[in-house]
Design a protein around this nucleic acid. Sequence first.
DNA 1: CTGTTAGCGCATTCAG
DNA 2: CTGAATGCGCTAACAG
Lengths: 337, 337
Amino acid sequence: MTDHHDDPVRSITDLAKIAGVSVSTVSRALTSKGALNKDTRRRIQELAARHGFRINVAAQNLRLGRTGAVAVLLPLGHERGQHLSDPFFMAMLGFLADELAERGYDLLLSRVLPDGEDWLDSFIRAGRTDGVIIIGQSNQSAVLDRTASHYQPLVIWGAYGARNQYLTVGTDNMAGGALAATHLLARGRRSLAFFGNVSVPEFAARYQGFLSALPADARDRVELVHAHVTPEASYRAATDYFAAGHRPDGIFAASDVTAMGVIAAAAEQDMRVPEQLSVIGFDDVPLAQMSNPPLTTVRQDIRRGAALLVELLCRRLAGETAQSVQFAPELVIRESS
Amino acid sequence: MTDHHDDPVRSITDLAKIAGVSVSTVSRALTSKGALNKDTRRRIQELAARHGFRINVAAQNLRLGRTGAVAVLLPLGHERGQHLSDPFFMAMLGFLADELAERGYDLLLSRVLPDGEDWLDSFIRAGRTDGVIIIGQSNQSAVLDRTASHYQPLVIWGAYGARNQYLTVGTDNMAGGALAATHLLARGRRSLAFFGNVSVPEFAARYQGFLSALPADARDRVELVHAHVTPEASYRAATDYFAAGHRPDGIFAASDVTAMGVIAAAAEQDMRVPEQLSVIGFDDVPLAQMSNPPLTTVRQDIRRGAALLVELLCRRLAGETAQSVQFAPELVIRESS
DNA sequence: CTGTTAGCGCATTCAG
DNA sequence: CTGAATGCGCTAACAG
């Protein structure tokens, strides 16, 4: 309990006054830095607690030449207003919040609608954060490359590209796509379709990996169906696709959310999953195992991804070197295939 | 394009130097405040653009005695690490980000594990943000009341309570519960169960509203099943419940996520939804209509909620008065009931 | 061990 | 219309 009556204590100056010491002493006492008599330190800390005083973080940071915050940017290159509904990104955000908090950083959340090529540099120059984590490179690869060349504390969640200069953490999407292909083949599926927006590099890689693991005859017949990553859009895309008379026996969806949309559309057409149609998703979001039927999917380890993003960022912040990391996805077989 | 070669321009002081004017002139030019010759203003703005200079927001805010940021706090009173997986909160977060951005505020995201009764005051005193939005009061009603008594810019998403002093925006959960009850009755269901964690005020209100709209005989037989708001926990709770031999014909789940867990568990027990068992959720998250069968649910208008939260907060920030708002939920009938 | 002093980058009086 | 000076709240030399 704090009981701050009398004079309000709004700054270390106020506190110094009533403690009868100098501001620097108060500063030292409260930051536990610098040499200071044990008793004075404790006395001042108690006084601060009694008056409910806490150091003003903004001023502290200005003085220290830092902000104490890291930005998490969600570029909505083509899916305006949609990304945040994706459970995968949300789970990622949660883990990032935890990881950053553990290292004493605030998390500044911002959705950005990339306009032109200056949005990122412009954001950085405003000096609101010490570093930037970008979730999904969207179609902004060129912008990222340019910024990364002169700004170190920048990490991107997304597909690794050998040509990219920027630091990425992500799943090996090609391998994930191959996993999906192999699985559908093992299920005897040959008439296949891929649902997703291949202008997003991550999804493009999944598609490529998928194709690459298919024998030529099956590969040539794969149909590419454009679908955005929202449940509604995926559902609509699938409905249109089925309505046009297509009857594949295996579908690889670029994300679990898309897979659920596809299954919902299939159910309406009385196509039985998995009897007539095998569906496999990507991500393994928490709801994947609750969906009906439980979703076969390619799992990405989100928690690990978040931890890695923060770790690499902190290395860069400390002036150390850091390298892109790509980890292997894992096939999770449930009942939709 | 910016081409910043030669001397780096890091502060208005630098810019003033190369512009041959004083810092105050630069300040006036860049903030578009104060009287200033039109030409000098334009000249300096162009110079700034050319050198890729942007005002340091942190310093500006310190000087202005503000932070330019609003905190969005997710108290995890009992569901450690889980809330952020709830699509409802996530959608809310997305809309909040947009609304705040529109008004020029950054969004500082933080999950808090309420410990003791000082976590909120302590956070506020750190002065990191100009205002606080709390998503879900969890079991922290007392803390919120105490803080609200001396801190104005604080708005809570959650159940309205006549006894609470703090400002809330939320759905009329009682009415929502009643909607669910009426609907299940109309479906001829009489053997009912409620799934949720009633130590959360919002869920408690849904439960109370549910009971209140039931005839005495049905009400007396309602079973209350404790379930946390994650898919896994809900699934487990339902599995255990069915395994214990319970066979209700109608279930009202405190959230859509819980409803999906219940349906998944029911499917495993070969209980057909909706033939043998009607299930109704709460929220109407995007995935609700993609679930199998599509979920009957009580809809909350998240977007409107977010807009209102921000609006009330801004009023409080401007020193104006603001009152709690509660809006009516809407029954969305699909195929799970 | 503690106090004095000088800024961090900016906005805003007050003069001119 | 513009410049000089002051300080937002804090930390870090540098003295003592």
